[in-house]
Design a protein around this nucleic acid. Sequence first.
DNA 1: ATTAGCACTCAATACAGTAGAGTGCTAACA
DNA 2: TGTTAGCACTCTACTGTATTGAGTGCTAAT
Lengths: 343, 343
Amino acid sequence: MDMGSRKRLILQAIIEDYINSAEPVGSRTISKKYLTGTSPATIRNEMSDLEDMGYIEQPHTSAGRIPSDKGYRLYVDKIMKQNTINEAQREMIKREFIESLGEIDRLIKHASKLLSQMTQYTSIVMAPQFRRTSIKQVQLLRIDRAVVLAVIVTDAGIIKNSVLRLKQDIQPDILVRITNMINDKMAGLNVEDIERFDLQDMLNNSLGHSEIIEQVVPELIQTLFYSDTSEVYHDGVSNILNLPEYSDIKKARDFLNTMEERELLFRVLNDVREDVKISIGKENNLEQFKECSLITATYKIDNKVIGSVGIIGPTRMEYSKAISIVECMTNNLSEILTNILKR
Amino acid sequence: MDMGSRKRLILQAIIEDYINSAEPVGSRTISKKYLTGTSPATIRNEMSDLEDMGYIEQPHTSAGRIPSDKGYRLYVDKIMKQNTINEAQREMIKREFIESLGEIDRLIKHASKLLSQMTQYTSIVMAPQFRRTSIKQVQLLRIDRAVVLAVIVTDAGIIKNSVLRLKQDIQPDILVRITNMINDKMAGLNVEDIERFDLQDMLNNSLGHSEIIEQVVPELIQTLFYSDTSEVYHDGVSNILNLPEYSDIKKARDFLNTMEERELLFRVLNDVREDVKISIGKENNLEQFKECSLITATYKIDNKVIGSVGIIGPTRMEYSKAISIVECMTNNLSEILTNILKR
DNA sequence: ATTAGCACTCAATACAGTAGAGTGCTAACA
DNA sequence: TGTTAGCACTCTACTGTATTGAGTGCTAAT
């Protein structure tokens, strides 16, 4: 059976109507609203074919049709037209970001809020990732007699820090020496290297400072790993309760539960390799998202992928709009991050 | 009309039954389950009195009674017995915390998770607050030619920092001079003082460094304020969907919306002055929480109140358990924070 | 003061009937 | 041969009605 252009129009009509209404779409509706020249009976025949081909399905005999995951996939890949967000919205993203210049952290949270507001779905974002960069330098700063602040600068300019509390007092000159030692050994390493870092070797060449190094270095390493998995934010979770598919309280609860598992969200975002990735329904690996679609995209610093953002909605998603918003968002993020860090 | 001891027992029975069942409690139930020696008719008379006194109310004529806010208040203040959490749970809190030693941030998030898990309500916590302490010292650390890390240490030992990107390069010796200047002017100030800080005066005495100071100091001040209002976490939001009072999707959505407004949650937590504060239903100032109860408590460093945590649940809350858990939590937080910061 | 008995109220449930949307099939038509 | 009108059929959603049962308030007896 081949996919004539009328079938394609009908599929498009079904999908776009269903996206708006969340109700099964019948042949009469299509005949009246989308293909005025064609009678319901003809459309019924075509719909029957489309069902056989697996693009649409029927919840029960006397209902209209709804798109299947396969149908959405075809729609996204071949049918829908791209770039439906207008210049005003594009401007909005740009403008909003200029205001939140400053702390990277703030920028990221702002991106999340903006994504969920503009799409009316739930957004998830991850802060720029260490794991994908390497250490440029480490600075140790004496705060108090036995308190040291460790600052880690990476090649993408991301700065992380942690407070170290030592068992004994430390003199400034010794701290300088230790700082140099650490930089000798650790500068240039990325997180994968750090996993295999040979602490013992360093202690053997510690010139009598092994006791302090033993306290400092593991703490430093831990900081790297911790910040790697924890900085995931989300926003607009309440939006999903506006959708009829979540009027079932059990589904809503499951969704909320999932959104509170930061580790999980991190994994989802971390898996993104493409510029923009679209996962529809059962295409998602996660059981929890089998009835959702995810639009995820990566952002970069100096063309180096450094993190990703995404939105989660029902499979009946406004793909075209959602995709362009997410895309526009990552483009702006990339640009601004690159600018503020290389300024 | 006076409050005989039988009325008190009946009120207690109504409240405790309603806490468990979320269903209006009838006279027969009380007679069978709580006051076996007394007939339903007698209890009905007493209940009628209790209703006149405003402690209970009737959703509709042929239903049982449910407690009013006033009823809960009396229960909390005079009737319920304290401290129902057992030694095992107390131990659990202690043990859990010992593991998450290290980053204060992690400790705080952990506290939130623990609170919601143990109570099965929604928890909110705020990170230790600057506003309640004063600046001990400011350190500026040169990261790159035009990039400076500012570290602020407070008298309670809380350390905050932010990355400053300058318009021009800066020499290390000049940075030291500026650091000294800033410390001269700002050490000892608290956030309230900072609000009235006279930047112009400082610029007049800047010995030729006014251009850099003009970039650094406002940024520094902003960091103080930003971190003051943003670090609010919550956990267990999904728990509320298990409660029958939120099976109405509209209510659930409103609740979720509220929980996503960090500013609002911050204000709620920031208002807490007492060791433990219990706000029942309409006692809450916020419209959004008129059907909820909040148990909030402060935690301290060196006996100086530095932040607070709380749980939000339905007015039909397991007050006794919730209060002891929140109390136990803040005690542990206070102890651990004091220890790790003064170590 | 307490209790048994009774009439009354009201929400919740179950049930039957109806309306309406939609399909599939067949036969007629261009 | 593709398209369409017509019709019987299916199934959900809604509506109205009757029933049930939990609970109350009142009255009279203990």
